[in-house]
C-alpha cells in the first residue's frame, strides 16, 4: 500500500484534533484532542521513516510518546486541581489571567 495514504490519514486525524481543541469546552475532551494531534504527528513520522527507508522518524515517534506521557501526567494533575476548586472541567471558566 502506498505510504502516502498514511499522510492523508494523519492530516485528517490532526484536523479532527485541532477542531476538537477549538470547539469543545470540556478540558478532558480538549486533552484527548491534543493527544490525537500528537499521534497524528507520530503517524507522519513513522510514515516518512518507512518512505525514506531509515529509522530516524521512528526514533522521534518514541520520543514524542515519552513526552506525551509526561505531559499527560502534568496536564491531568492541573485539570484535577481546577476541578477541585471550581467544580467544573470547562476551560472557558478559568479566565482570570487577562487584560
Amino acid at each position: 500500500m502506498d505510504p502516502v495514504y498514511y499522510i492523508y490519514l494523519a492530516t485528517v486525524l490532526f484536523s479532527i484534533g485541532a477542531v476538537g481543541v477549538l470547539v469543545r469546552r470540556n478540558a478532558i475532551i480538549v486533552f484527548m484532542s491534543v493527544e490525537l494531534m500528537l499521534n497524528a504527528a507520530n503517524l507522519v513520522f513513522v510514515a516518512f521513516a518507512r518512505m525514506n527507508g531509515n529509522l530516524d522518524g521512528q526514533t522521534v515517534a518514541f520520543f514524542v510518546m515519552v513526552v506525551a506521557a509526561a505531559e499527560v501526567v502534568v496536564g491531568l494533575a492541573i485539570i484535577v486541581q481546577v476541578f477541585r476548586t471550581r467544580q467544573s472541567a470547562s476551560i472557558d471558566e478559568p479566565n482570570l489571567l487577562k487584560y
Binding site: N95, L97, K98
Partner: peptide, 17 residues
C-alpha cells in the same frame, strides 16, 4: 490591543492555528 488578551484559552489556540 490588550483586549485580545481575553483569558480564553481556546481563542489563543485559534490564533495559534
Amino acid at each position: 490591543l490588550r483586549r485580545t488578551q481575553s483569558g480564553f484559552i481556546r481563542s489563543y489556540a485559534l490564533s495559534m492555528v
